[in-house]
Design a protein around this nucleic acid. Structure first.
Lengths: 206, 206
DNA sequence: ACTTAGTTTAATAGAGTTATTAAATTGGGT
DNA sequence: ACCCAATTTAATAACTCTATTAAACTAAGT
């Protein structure tokens, strides 16, 4: 038995790159095969359907984001520190995976079924719920203590996510428009990270 | 001469709806024809290529955004008022055209050529440049007067755009996840608008 | 040497895509 | 009544895409 061909993994690697770069629709199994260095039929031999192959990559990237949120700031009871940690690590993770935000949002928006699957995953995931409850408690207590202005937890969450995620969604446009090279992009991201933290912290004062 | 068929316009209307809803790739000229109530060949008779038809819609939606930014806050020299006006009218425009932000960003990100065309349009458009220069002057003067914290004009601009635009990009996910009906969505958007204004104004204080 | 399971390819069915062409239809102008 | 230009359709060329099938290949186990 000729086992454990390296092509199976090559296909997955090629698919990951192409799907992240161009999305589900704009990537054909022929493209994947060419990039992996095999016939198109082999892609289907190992993964049967394109959707199947895509699903694995999508789930993996989705988990990467979620798990990262969970592992950080577990028992932090200092809001400023929690926010700093969150934005900081979120920015760092996404800086190393810049296509992920647009990739996930695009595929979720453009596919009702994927959206339903995500929904199910979120509302049945005890970890996420617990995380949000703690987060909510922390904010409410800070408001009660008069340390920050009154604000709904969901609003604050969306503020933070908007500022972080949109940075990466708009990055291709920004770097193209201002002809930024890799080094300039890194500096830009660093600056944005600090501005986001500043805006949120200052914007929460009474 | 049988002139002025109503089908030419029906095709454009159908194309607009389908392109905005599903994007360029996921819309076929057959879909457009079916929705317009004519043969697929007629779509090509009037617009020759799918790209052509798309181009007109894309440009129109792009202009809608730009022109709207220009017409508002022309000679406002009160930063708080300028920001309030901007966020307010931006939110209102997008509330009536909710798919536009994602539509434009997706098609720009996924097509290098469109990105280049946008770039050319932006850097040769005297109106936009003038607008940005005035805006920059206003912010610098407010910083000099000590009314707000030091902040780069581009950073502030990106802060505002992030908060506004991401609201609409993530809206399909949000409304699906929390099963919002139309009325709840309107209330949500109203609340977001106020929160964005608050966050920006408070976040600019020293 | 030979079997056998896993790997890989060539070929192709079947559906869908854009775009073109030639023919048919329509209705106002003369 | 007829012309003629604009409109509309049917048919089809020339792709591309996913998925399957049958055949060929490879190497480990006996």
């Amino acid at each position: 038995m000729a086992k454990n061909s390296q092509l199976e993994e090559s296909i997955m690697k090629a698919a990951e790159e192409l799907f992240l770069q161009n999305g589900f629709d704009a990537t054909s199994t022929t493209d994947i095969a060419k990039s992996a260095g095999c016939t198109q039929a082999l892609v289907h031999y190992y993964y049967r359907t394109k959707e199947n192959l895509f699903q694995q990559i999508f789930t993996q990237k989705f988990q990467l984001l979620i798990s990262h949120i969970h592992e950080k700031n577990n028992q932090v009871n200092d809001l400023e520190l929690a926010l700093r940690n969150f934005v900081d690590s979120y920015f760092d993770t996404l800086s190393k995976n810049r296509q992920i935000p647009f990739f996930l949002i695009k595929e979720l928006i453009m596919n009702e079924e994927r959206r339903q699957r995500m929904r199910m995953r979120m509302i049945t995931d005890a970890g996420s719920l617990q995380y949000y409850t703690d987060w909510d408690k922390l904010i409410k207590s800070e408001i009660a203590k008069g340390n920050i202005r009154p604000i709904d937890t969901m609003d604050l969450t969306i503020d933070v996510v908007s500022l972080v995620v949109f940075t990466f969604i708009s990055l291709p446009l920004y770097s193209d428009l201002f002809e930024q090279n890799e080094e300039e992009i890194r500096a830009y991201l660093q600056r944005r990270k600090e501005e986001v933290i500043t805006l949120i912290l200052k914007g929460l004062r009474k």
